[in-house]
Write a protein that binds this DNA or RNA. Structure first.
Length: 265
DNA sequence: CCCGTGCCCTGGCGGC
DNA sequence: TGCCGCCAGGGCACGG
């Protein structure tokens, strides 16, 4: 599932293909994903710029901003054949190319915003800072009155943006913090370790082209950071630090992998 | 404000 | 072999 690194990789691909191009036509095959009004407004818009915020992609267009979230399985690709997949839900036509949005589970979203609204209404208004921009002391303060496990708090995009289930496990492993440690028990040093580990993990993942687990592909190319996972999906395998078996538990309904020897409350 | 639960959706897998 | 039921998960609505 795409997290910040994968989203950046996708955005880079889209940037290369779409900057300066104008939308001439759109086919929508799943109405809930993009309604008629949004579609109409998009026709004739030129892509001026692409940026990402956490897991969101923002297409800066002539008159609007289009906010795309891939959720678990969303992906963009340039078709090589006419044949449409049953999971292609939105097809964007430009003067000389076609980009398809493919999403097996239909969880992805498109939000069209007037430019003066983009950052003052949801979903971007409440989005926290990315680890790269987040002061560890500010993060520490935001955890002060939180009683949830740190694993759940790392997934809360209002507190810190861009981390999903895979990298949350990897970040806590590197920071040597138990996923069930409560937010209000996180020390200033813990907070620094989390931010530093986040930057380390996410940066390396971006460099490697994004993790491939069940589904992530970018325009057909497979990333390979998944080969470097220390704990996620590694249940029963020996911890690379201490050799004890990696454990799997549920935290906030999410599968969580960790080493109970290396990661302390 | 904070927190837990359920929902959206489909492919894949375990069990029989 | 085939079918059934359950699980996976990001973000949000909802209720306590």
């Amino acid at each position: 599932m795409p997290e910040l690194p994968e989203v950046r990789v996708v955005s880079k691909f889209l940037r290369n293909e779409l900057i300066g191009k104008t939308i001439t036509h759109i086919d929508v095959y799943y109405d809930k994903m993009m309604n008629e009004t949004v579609k109409e407004k998009l026709i004739g818009q030129t892509v001026n710029k692409l940026k990402t915020l956490g897991k969101y992609i923002v297409f800066e267009l002539t008159d609007y901003d289009l906010i795309s979230h891939l959720r678990m399985e969303g992906k963009y690709y340039q078709p090589t054949t006419q044949a449409r997949s049953k999971h292609d839900h939105v097809v964007f036509f430009f003067n000389d190319l076609e980009i398809r949005y493919h999403d097996t589970r239909k969880f992805g979203t498109f939000d069209l915003r007037n430019k003066d609204e983009t950052y003052v209404v949801p979903p971007l208004s409440k989005l926290g800072k990315e680890p790269f921009d987040l002061d560890p002391l500010d993060f520490y303060k935001s955890l002060k009155n939180r009683h949830s496990p740190i694993k759940s708090l790392l997934l809360n995009q209002h507190l810190i943006a861009g981390i999903g289930n895979i990298y949350a496990d990897e970040i806590l492993f590197l920071a040597k913090i138990h996923p069930l440690k409560k937010g209000n028990k996180i020390t200033k040093q813990n907070s620094k370790d989390i931010i530093n580990s986040s930057i380390d993990v996410l940066t390396r993942a971006i460099d490697k082209g994004g993790t491939t687990l069940h589904s992530f592909k970018n325009n057909g190319e497979v990333g390979w950071f998944s080969q470097e996972l220390n704990v996620h999906l590694q249940e029963h395998k020996p911890c690379k630090i201490c050799g004890n078996p990696i454990q799997r538990i549920k935290v906030g309904g999410r599968s969580t992998y960790f080493c109970k020897t290396c990661q302390r409350k």
